[in-house]
Every structure is written in C-alpha cells, then in structure tokens.
Design a protein around this nucleic acid. Structure first.
Lengths: 240, 240
DNA sequence: TTGCTAGTGTGAGGCTTTTCACAGATTCGT
DNA sequence: ACGAATCTGTGAAAAGCCTCACACTAGCAA
C-alpha cells in the first residue's frame, strides 16, 4: 500500500494541516496506479471526489465527434485534478488519462467540503486553485483566437518553457516529452502542420529538434516575434 | 447617488447578508455610470477591487497586436466581474467595456476578502463563481479547437440560446443584440465569414436574420447537426 | 429631409491549413 | 535481438478561410 499521507502533505492545499488531521483524511482516501495511456476517469463516470496526483503525469482531454483529442491541461505531481467535484458537479465532460505511469489518490468530495467549512485557509486555497486554473485557460483562449498555427505554436512553446523549462548548455530544454501530435492536440491543429512549423523554426535557428524533445536556443527572440515578454526560466536541474 | 445597497442585494454572493452588513459594505463602495462603448478598466489599470454590474451590459475583451478584439465574456446585471482582484492579482491582461450604457459598483478587494474570512458561505460562493466561469470558458475552448467556422458559430448560437433565448411565435429569439462582427470576435473569425455562414444557415431554414437580431426556428435540429443536446429555453418574455 | 454611420451582402483572388499517402527512423516490448 | 508500434519528415491536391473591394440598407442626428 502507498504511503498516502506522504503525498497528501506534498499538496499545497494540505501542507499546513496537522498530522492528525491528515491521518483522518488519509483514512477516507483510496489510492491506485494507472499505466501510461490508461484512463483515470471518463466523462460518463460519476465524479465521486477530487483526485491528487502522487507521481507520474496526467492529461485532461476532451474528444470531438470525429475522434480528435483536445488536450486541455497537464497535471503534475502534487496537483489536484477533477476538482470540480468539490462543487457537487456530478458529471464531468472531459476525461483524464495517464500521460505516464501514475499513482493517484482519490479524496472524497465530502472530505474537502468539510475542510473548507472548518478551515478558511483551505477554502481560500481552493479558490486560488480555481482562479489559477481559470487564468491559465483564459490565457490559452486568448492566444488561440485569431492566430495562425505558427503563432499558436510559438505561444505554446513559451508557455511550456515557463512551466517546464530548464537551462542547459545550449539553451532551454523542456522537462516534459511531447510528440508533435500532442502539440497539435493542444493548439487545435494537425500533426503534419506542427512538424512543418517546427521545422521552419528550427531552420530559422530558434530551436533544435529531437525525438519528443525540443531545445529552445533563443527564447527571448522567439517571444519578441509574437510580442510577448520572455518567460522567467527556472534556473536549475532537469528535476526528477 | 445610486442606491448601491439595492444592487448589492441583487448579487448572488450578497443576497444572504444582513442589511447592517450590507450598509457597511456599501459605505466602502463607489458607483459610476459608463456610456456604451466606453472602457471600464484597461489592462494597464491597477485592479483595486471587484466590480458589480448594476445595470446595462459589459463585455470582457482582449486585443491582439494587430488590433483584433477577442470577446471573452459578457456580463449581465447582478454579476461580478474583474473578480481576479480577489486573489491580489494586481494586473489584469484583459479589458472591460460597456456593451450598453451601464452602472457599475466598485467593491474594494479587501472588503470581499474580509467577508470571505468571516463567512464560509461567501467563501464558497466565490469558489463557485470561479468554478462556473471556468467551466464556461473551458467549454468554449472545447468547441473552438479543431472546429470549422460553421461549427463554431452553431455552438455559439446554441450557447446564446441557453443564456439569452426566449420563445416567440416562430421560434426562439435572443435577448441580446449582436452584430456579425461581435459574433466573429467571439469565435475568432471574420465578419464576412460570419455573414456568409449565417446566410447559409438561413437558407437551410435553421434561422431568420434581422439587423443585429437572429431568430432560431429550429434549435433542436441545429443542435443535432453538431451532436449536442438541445438547450433548455427559458419559457417566457423578452425581459427588460 | 438630408446626410452619416453602422451593419449587412457578395465575389474574386490568394494564402493557410488540412487531407491523404508514403518513407525512414527510433523506441518499446518480449 | 527482433518485430511492432510510435514518431517524424515530405509533397501534392483540395478545402477552407481571409483579404480586399464595393454596393446596399436601416437607423440616427441635425
């Protein structure tokens, strides 16, 4: 059995709770492992609670009638997802799948609601979480509307650098592996177009391509080309 | 001077507060009127507080470098906007303008934060507000990604019916007046394309066009054509 | 009434993006 | 180590959408 409490403590929302309190929550939670590519919840599933990602990586998607997969977000270890269940939203209309082998913890909605009622800190934390997610998605909407695929892709790369970038000898690399298909699924384009545009950007010297790997050699001029201020880059190591 | 307290009471978030409490809040708020087409806040403005729309209609927009206006949302009387200020987000990156002559009330962020800290109900209300807005925008992102302009427009029409539709003799009319340019600004297209697509839909018998006015004659088959369940339509009158 | 403005209708031409088809390369599972 | 699956690169043809240019109408203001 997984040490659930250890992971609970790593989530912003719970880090300030007492160990006793955490033990109590832990008792109500269940954990499970999901292999890469497998679903965690489907739109049809009833939303019984909130999920916490202990390890791995999760993507939140929706699928069009023609079978195209739109990627709405990636979730990193320590982050909550499926959190609309907190609002007694029983039905979700997106689904979550493991982008890598993952361990997840299911926290019953009632548990969070109880915490929110008792501890204003938690309540505020949830509000902030919602606000943050909303800002992210609003920002994405803005850079998708009216923009060419080239611009969309550049904006996405900059966002990825902000979230996953780390410095290497010859530029900035990403701590996340994405195929061209994945990138297309985020910006609402096709795999082929992404391949071509990335090829162009490489030819123009903005980046270097590897298999599921992109190294940005000139983030700031790339940012300037879409009139956006260059992102801050986390100074250090590749991480786990 | 406007009867601010009257309007505060009409906002979901405040409706359960005592009159005394409301008086106290009222004392900290300021009200102003804005004529159609004028800005309410700009991206550069510091976000001093949250805004409550007392009357009129507001649109939340962002502008691309090439001067295209993306409409992110409409705000109706009784709704809050600019609410990210609650999270001490000092800088906004969208702007708000009056879509019709409007009266707005500015509530200092500190006031809301105090309420949230003292009253769990308010705190939950804010969380719900954030969650709701996020669901809306996520839904929009989903119907924009990978979709043709025709599909985007149909989805938008269905959303508008849900929010603004009322039954009339020959179908469903909308309680909001939008030009083709407005519609284009919502779905990220151009005025001409919207005109053409609406013309097609009219020819196919789905709707009838008037000046800044659309009457849907067959909402359910329109919904079926994009594989969406038909929206509920508010049963009655045109409203104010 | 007479402008004037905002909103709508239409078409030609060109650019962007998708679609389809296939080939080579790398990684993964067993 | 081997075959299978995944990932990337490329090109031709077609579809979709945007740009630009202009005409017409309804509503508003003086």
């Amino acid at each position: 059995m997984v040490e659930k409490i250890w992971y609970l403590k790593r989530c912003d929302l719970f880090e300030r709770l007492s160990t006793d309190r955490l033990r109590a929550i832990e008792a109500r939670c269940s954990a499970r492992k999901v292999a890469r590519g497998n679903p965690i919840y489907l739109p049809a599933d009833e939303a019984r609670g909130v999920l916490l990602l202990a390890s791995g990586r999760v993507k939140i998607c929706s699928v069009t009638a023609e079978g195209r997969q739109a990627i709405l977000a990636f979730i990193e270890p320590g982050e909550l997802f499926g959190e609309l269940a907190i609002l007694d939203q029983l039905q979700r209309d997106e689904y979550a799948e493991a982008a890598e082998a993952s361990q997840i913890i299911l926290i019953p909605a009632a548990e969070i609601q109880k915490l929110m009622a008792e501890l204003p800190d938690v309540s505020l934390g949830v509000t902030k979480l919602f606000g943050l997610r909303r800002m992210r998605i609003e920002r994405r909407l803005k850079y998708l509307l009216f923009r060419s695929n080239r611009e969309r892709l550049i904006h996405l790369l900059i966002e990825l650098v902000e979230q996953y970038g780390y410095l290497v000898a010859d530029g900035v690399a990403l701590r996340i592996k994405l195929s061209h298909q994945d990138l297309a699924n985020i910006i609402g384009s096709t795999r082929e177009t992404v391949t071509v545009v990335l090829g162009d950007l490489q030819a123009e010297g903005f980046l270097r391509l590897g298999r599921r790997k992109i190294t940005l050699s000139n983030v700031s001029s790339l940012a300037k080309s879409v009139q956006v201020k260059p992102p801050r880059i986390e100074g250090v190591t590749p991480g786990a």
